[in-house]
Design a protein around this nucleic acid. Structure first.
Length: 262
DNA sequence: ATCTATTCCTGGCTGC
DNA sequence: TGCAGCCAGGAATAGA
């Protein structure tokens, strides 16, 4: 499940190999991944040159001359260079020099394009690295939802998913059920700091490969070995030895230490 | 405006 | 062994 660090790793692999390349062909093998793209003809992408690549939260933006291609990998989406067609190939982008295959088993991912960045992308919250502790605290003020749910809200902060939210809350010593609006300024600042720490460390490790995640060159990440709570139900907390607990919060599996996180 | 529940999808796992 | 049924989850959507 690609979150900010995984998407960052993918974009870092894509950018040098796609920048300046010309789109030769665009083929879609599944209409499901185009569910956000109403009435566009893939042929209009052909012959355009890639201007630049950008990550916004978990979204990949490929800026062409006249259009922007917006890709979200969902749960099982992958962008792979020259991998060849598989039963789960949903789209194929031919460039002068390489071919990019979009694979997605569960088809939670999506691809769309338009002449301007879509509104819902513009409405995303700030990058976790681009918000001050004070602004972060303000964003939580008055919110009567568990802090975990708020951190998953991409309109508040963009890029966090289930893994890194659980890991951040453990590092900050905050119970995922705590209401966001009840966090003090210092605790909010600590939380933001730990969010930035865990994301930076995960990027250094090229992301987490928990199911079958690989980057555009087929390389796995290594940060799953650093997880302290995610996927560790029943195992001892590395800080205090208490068994890690798993609950369902906001329809999401949630992992935490009942002793360290209050 | 804010919050919660539901829906999408399918390989892999659990349990009978 | 075989198979039904359930699970994982990001984001859009509907409903409260």
């Amino acid at each position: 499940m690609p979150e900010l660090p995984e998407v960052e790793t993918i974009v870092n692999a894509l950018a040098p190999r796609l920048s300046g390349r010309r789109v030769i062909s665009a083929e879609f093998l599944s209409s499901l991944v185009l569910r956000h793209c109403i009435g566009g003809d893939p042929q209009e992408l052909v012959q355009q040159t890639v201007a630049k690549l950008e990550r916004r939260g978990k979204f990949i933006l490929i800026h062409l001359e006249r259009h922007v291609l917006v890709i979200h990998l969902g749960m099982t989406g992958k962008l792979l260079f020259d991998s060849g067609r598989s039963p789960y190939t949903r789209a194929i982008f031919g460039f002068d020099g390489c071919t990019l295959f979009y694979e997605d088993i569960r088809q939670f991912g999506s691809i769309e394009w338009s002449t301007v960045v879509p509104k819902r992308i513009e409405l995303l919250g700030p990058e976790p690295f681009d918000i001050t502790p004070a602004a972060f605290h303000r964003a939580m003020r008055g919110r009567r939802t568990p802090v975990k749910s708020l951190l998953l809200n991409q309109q508040v902060l963009r890029g966090l998913g289930n893994i890194y939210v659980d890991e951040s809350l453990w590092r900050a010593g905050i119970n995922p059920r705590r209401l966001a609006g009840k966090l003090s300024g210092p605790r909010a600042a600590r939380l933001l700091e730990e969010i930035q720490n865990v994301l930076n460390e995960a990027i250094q490790h090229r992301g987490s490969s928990i199911s079958d995640y690989v980057d555009a060159d087929g390389r796995k990440g290594g940060f799953q070995l650093q997880h302290r709570v995610y996927g560790r139900e029943g195992k001892p907390c590395v800080n205090c030895g208490t068994p890690i607990r798993r609950i369902v919060l906001g329809q999401r599996g949630t992992h935490y230490c009942p002793k360290c996180q209050r």
